[in-house]
Amino acid sequence: MRNAPPFIWAAIGLIAAGLARHVVADGTGPVLAPSLIALLTLFLAMLGFARREGWAARLATPALFGLVLLWLWEMLVIGFAVPFVLLPPPSAIALAFIRHLALLWQDFAQTYLHAVIAGYGLGCGAGFLVALAIDRSPFLKRGLLPMGNMISAMPIVGIAPIMVMWFGFEWPSKAAVVVVMTFFPMLVNTTAGLAEAGAIERDLMRSYAAGYGVTLLKLRLPAALPHIFTALKLNATLALIGAVVAEFFGTPILGMGFRISTEAAKMNLDLVWATITVAALAGSLSFGALALLERLVTFWHPSFRGSS
C-alpha cells in the first residue's frame, strides 16, 4: 500500500475532494465520507512525495499542502455556513478576483507600477551610491553605519503621515515612504559587501597596477553582489508594505491599501481578499524574480554551487 506511487493517491484524493466540494454546496449526498477519503489519500500522497527526491516531488508536497488548506477552508466555510462578512470561501474570492479584474489592475498600477517601482529604484539606487561614496571615508562609515542599523530597526512606516502631508495624496508620497524604507537596508548591506573582498585579492589587484575604479568594478562590486541581492530581496517586500501602509493614511480613490481599508470597512471581504491575493502575488513574484536573477548573476557563490 505505502509503496503505491503517490501520484495515484493524489489523483484519488483530488477527485474525492472535488466530489465533496460539489456535494457540500448542493446538499445532495453524504459529505463526510468523500471528505475523509480525500484527506486520507492526500495525506498519503504528501507522505509519499515527501519521501522522494527530485524537483517534482519537492514541488508537489507543498503544492498539495496548499491545496488541502484551501480546500479545508472552502469546505469548512460552506459546511458550517460561516457568515460571508467573517470569511468568504476561496471560490468566492476567485470569483471576485475575476469580476473585478479591471479595478484590481488599476489599484495594482497605482500602488505597484507607480509608487513601489519608483520608490524602490530611487531608494535602492541612493543607498547604493551613498554606500559607494562613504566607502572611501572610514570616519563617515563608522558614523553612518550604526545609524543605519538603528534606523533599520525603527518602525519607519510611521513616517507615512508626514510624507502624505509633504507630497500630497497621490503616489509620490507613497514612493517617498518606500525610498526611506529601502535606503538604509541597501546602505548597510552594500557597505558590508564592499568589505567582503579580502586583503590578498586587493593586493593582487594593486600588483596589477589597478586603480580604485578598476578594483571596484572587477573585484569589490562582484564580491559585494550577494550582500546587495540580500538587500534587494528584503527591500522588495519592504517596498510593497511601505506603499500599502502609506495608503492607509490618505490616498486618491485608487490603490491596494485604499481598496483593502475601505472595502474591509464596507464588509466586501471577497474584494479585500482578492486585493490581498494581488499583493501576495506581486510580492512573491518580485521576490522570485530577484532570487532568479541572483542565481544567474552570483552563480559562483558557495551557497549556489552544488545545489543546482
Binding site: 462578512v85 522588495a236 508594505i241 501602509v245 483593502i260 474591509a264 481578499w273 490581498i276 499583493a279
Partner: peptide, 25 residues
C-alpha cells in the same frame, strides 16, 4: 517538505496589508 516552503513564501507577502481586515473581522 509541506509547511516550510509556505513559511518562506509567506515572508515575501506584504502581511501588513491584511491588518485592517483582521481588525474589522
Amino acid at each position: 517538505r509541506s509547511l516550510m516552503p509556505w513559511v518562506i513564501a509567506s515572508q515575501t507577502v506584504p502581511v501588513l496589508a491584511i491588518a485592517p481586515m483582521v481588525v474589522v473581522v
